[in-house]
């Protein structure tokens, strides 16, 4: 479908009188006990969670307190880097709302060993470049595995995991 009218770009807006302010809104957030250890774990290729003995939930990202039981959590648990897809989307828009050719695929992945509905938010990769391909290759409940950055390149950030890719079943 084609829309009629004049499309406005940066050029058109530059003609207007404007006030410009480049605020330096920069932060160094204290990650605290739970997230600092989680990030440190990622640097070493480990995914760490916290367990609450009261409700039995294994939480990721980890928390030093259980938001349901309102008590301190009790134990660090190292999870594997495999899991199953709880939900995913196929994103075709860039930050400036322009179209992407190759989509990004955000997904919530429940890592094996965590509690029900306790997912980690990340991206999927190696699942195709078009909507059709992605929808053919990705299903809710599908098993996936983390693809890590090379050890030397890891810095203790969520991006130390590049993406999750499908686990191919051996025939």
């Amino acid at each position: 479908m084609k829309f009629e009218g004049i499309s406005l770009g940066l050029k058109e807006f530059e003609k207007e009188i404007k006030v410009e302010w480049k605020g330096k809104l920069e932060y160094e957030w204290d990650c605290g006990i739970a997230l600092s250890k989680f990030m440190e774990g990622l640097k070493h290729g480990k995914i760490l969670a916290r367990k609450c003995y009261a409700c039995g939930r294994i939480m990721i990202p980890p928390r030093m307190f259980c938001e349901r039981c309102f008590r301190p959590t009790d134990e660090w648990i190292e999870l594997g880097d495999e899991g199953e897809i709880l939900t995913f989307s196929v994103s075709f828009v860039n930050w400036d709302a322009s179209r992407r050719k190759k989509p990004e695929i955000p997904a919530v992945i429940r890592l094996l060993g965590t509690s029900e509905n306790m997912g980690i938010l990340h991206k999927l990769g190696e699942v195709g470049d078009t909507l059709e391909e992605v929808l053919k290759n990705v299903k809710i409940g599908m098993k996936v595995k983390a693809v890590w950055k090379k050890e030397k390149e890891r810095e203790g950030a969520i991006t130390d995991i590049l993406y999750f890719k499908p686990i191919k079943r051996r025939k």
Binding site: V19, W21, G23, K24, L25, E26, Y27, D30
Partner: peptide
């Protein structure tokens, strides 16, 4: 303590047309 440029956060509270410039 996590804000690197506190003055810039304050500035965001000033009128963007009359005062901030």
């Amino acid at each position: 303590s996590n804000i690197l440029y506190h003055s810039h956060v304050h500035a965001m509270a000033l009128d963007p047309v009359f005062v901030r410039p």
